[in-house]
Simulated assay, not measured.
Amino acid sequence: MKKRSILWIALPLLTLILVVFMSLSITLGAANLSWQTVWQVILSRLPIINQWIEPNWSDSTETIVLDIRMPRVILAAIVGAALALAGAIYQGVLRNPLADPFILGVSSGASFGAALVFALGLQIVWLGQFTLPVVAFLFGFGTLMVVYFLARIGQKVKMETIILAGVVVQAFIGACLSLVMTLANEQLQTIVFWMMGSLTLTDWSYTQVVLPIIAVAGVVALFYTRELNMLGLGEEVAHHSGLSVERTRFYLLILASIMTGAAVSVSGAIGFVGLVVPHIIRLIVGADYRLILPLSIVGGAIFLVGADTLARVLMAPRELPLGVITAFLGAPFFAYLLRKAKREFF
């Protein structure tokens, strides 16, 4: 079957699954709502269609659907899509199927920025409630710049060097983060819960902040599928094919890190999404990034919406950290990948 045919079949199917997951997630919670009620409330806000819908629900039901659950579910889909797409790009650029969006320390940098905001009670006047995501994003992106600077030797950056630089910077930031947590006192619990991943404190305003950033970076990244396929053949082959390897690699790392930083800034450090989803897509459709990138976007959204739903309902009314759920789902698959890689190596 042609690649284009696979894409036109798989993409609508995954999109349909995503809509079902999002609808199910909105209905589930402390106050159980029917699918019919949920869709009536949503459609009642659409022009033309709302003329055919008779409101027969309470104001509290509308508030739960439109102001509490729906923004959270949509943000979960956005964050999941961003992390999965970033993971696919990192795996392609680094030529390592075990790479994930946090390998270069972007997540650690964002977590450190967020911890400072919590510990110091920092709030920039002209940013208001957006101080946390903006500071976390800037720290995450700044971490990438430090890693890239340390890994640069002359005019080149080798993959082994950039991974080692990421490990070193992550270790240093981890120490700084531990120091902040030690001095945080009453804010310690908030910092720890945020670092484990959570969408508890989100509303429509957070979606409005991160969606344009992730959408623009994601759309630009989709134009680099050919370059990612060429990088997969090796640097020498890509260079002899006319590709500017260093420049392309830098642009792709920037795009992936922008998406990672924006996602982490509103959700905390959520692991395994960028590792598991692209690899599952690769196992199903092959190594062509013309398929991997768009399918990873929808697959990541499905994965995180499902994980967030489990985090809310497994121990309701108590909520589990989202990162705990993704770790429970992703760690066994990661172990499988390591086992498979070990068999192939030996």
Rank of each mutant, 00 (worst) to 15 (best):
M1Q: 04
S5F: 04
L14N: 12
G29T: 15
A30W: 10
A31W: 03
N32T: 11
N32M: 10
S34K: 08
Q36Y: 07
I48K: 06
N50D: 14
W52R: 14
T63W: 02
I64R: 00
I68Q: 15
G80L: 13
I89E: 02
L94D: 02
A99G: 05
P101R: 02
P101G: 02
I103K: 05
G109W: 08
A110G: 07
A110F: 02
A114C: 10
A115R: 03
L116H: 14
L116T: 09
L116R: 11
F118S: 01
V125A: 08
V125F: 11
Q129G: 02
F130M: 10
L132Q: 05
F141D: 07
V146R: 05
L164K: 15
Q170M: 11
Q170T: 12
C176G: 13
S178M: 09
L183N: 07
Q187G: 04
I191V: 14
D203A: 06
D203Q: 05
V209T: 09
E235P: 08
S241N: 13
L243S: 09
E246W: 01
L253H: 10
L255Y: 01
A256E: 10
V264G: 08
V273T: 10
P278K: 14
R282P: 00
L283Q: 09
L283V: 05
D288W: 04
F303D: 08
G306F: 07
R312H: 11
R312F: 06
V313Y: 13
E319V: 14
L320A: 07
G323D: 11
G323P: 04
I325D: 01
L329Y: 06
L337R: 05
K342M: 10
